[in-house]
Simulated scan of single mutants.
Amino acid sequence: MRINVIIPAYNSESTIEKAIKSAIELNKYVDTRVVVIDDGSTDKTYIIAESYKKQIVLLRNKGKGVSSARNEGLEFLINEKTEDEWITFLDADDVLVEDAFKEISTRKYNSFEYINFCFKEGTPFISETISSERASYYAIKSLKNKNYNFNSPWGRVLKLDFIKKYNLKFDENLSYKEDMLFNIQCFKYMPRIITLQNIGYEHVNSESSVINNFIPSALSDEKYIYAQVKKMFMNKNKLEEMERLVGTIGLTFVYVFPKNTNSKILLNGKKRFYEVRKFLGHVEVNKAFKELNKIDFTIIILYKFGLYRFMKLLFKMKGRI
């Protein structure tokens, strides 16, 4: 077997070398190929990656965004022989731990198409097989469930044959939650899924992370994702409701009260609050209470009753604004 590590990179000169080295070093016990896609960097990212050209595949993208860069890597791989080939994603500011694929390399899990593994932030997963419907639920619920991560692009290994068969790609029109949508599109085709307790990934939540910044398109992206969830999981109202609840909470952090922002953007916070409240629509309080933690449930209640000032005060107390 060979595991292909796809690394999209944009202006990552301070971290890209560490990421590349962490992937190359895994060759000592499993055949690993590293594919770096420079997405139009204006710093020394490409030069640093190029110094490893004998050990990696280096591609160039035209600054179209992380989804386009990941798709460029996938396109390169599926044009080759895909039998017994696997793929995983690594962000340019994260690393794979020393024995990330040691358990996977035993080939005990070759009957699966989707292998989920742990990362150092958060609770280790429970090792078990899991249905596509349940995985979709956890993906939509995001990291709020504390037991599984099915919403990120990293922390999993997928069979390349499966990706090729269903022409799975990241939606390049999205700036927000494109990774979660990619995963539930995978689950639509019912892959055999297993979760492993092995910690293989070290994730860094930096100031540049999506959750800390204002995303102007977040509401339109969320509406699109909600429509996709509704279309993919017809008659499964629980998944739709969960997407609306968790989507509303996510919008609070990247659209209504983003952390890294300016006073001009904050001035329009009230308008954005009511836009998100409209998206949330009718909500059954008992269902929200059952599914959410205390803070998230409080946020939903503030939307339900239009209590913008109280929400703004809450975010000030938490140091978000």
Rank of each mutant, 00 (worst) to 15 (best):
P124W: 09
N71F: 06
Q228E: 15
K18D: 11
A69N: 00
S175N: 14
E222K: 04
K53V: 02
V97Q: 10
V35S: 07
R320T: 08
E17C: 02
K223W: 02
S142D: 12
L26K: 05
R192D: 10
L267H: 12
N268K: 14
D31Q: 14
I48L: 13
F125P: 06
S206F: 10
L302T: 03
G306K: 09
L307W: 02
K44C: 00
S206I: 05
I265H: 09
V285K: 14
I193F: 07
Y189F: 15
L239T: 03
K271C: 08
L174C: 09
R60N: 14
R107C: 14
V256M: 04
L158R: 10
Y201A: 01
K290E: 15
E243F: 05
L74W: 01
D31F: 13
L90G: 05
N268I: 04
P258N: 12
Y148L: 09
E98T: 14
N173A: 11
N235E: 10
C118Q: 10
I301C: 06
K53Q: 09
K270Y: 10
L174G: 00
T106W: 07
F257L: 07
F279C: 06
P124E: 14
M242W: 09
Q228S: 08
V95P: 00
K278M: 00
A69P: 04
A288L: 04
F253M: 00
M1Q: 14
S127L: 13
Y303S: 08
K188Y: 14
T42I: 15
F101Y: 06
G247V: 01
F112D: 01
G247D: 11
K144I: 14
S208P: 00
A9V: 05
P124G: 11
K270D: 00
Y109G: 02
I194H: 11
L280T: 04
K28E: 15
K120W: 03
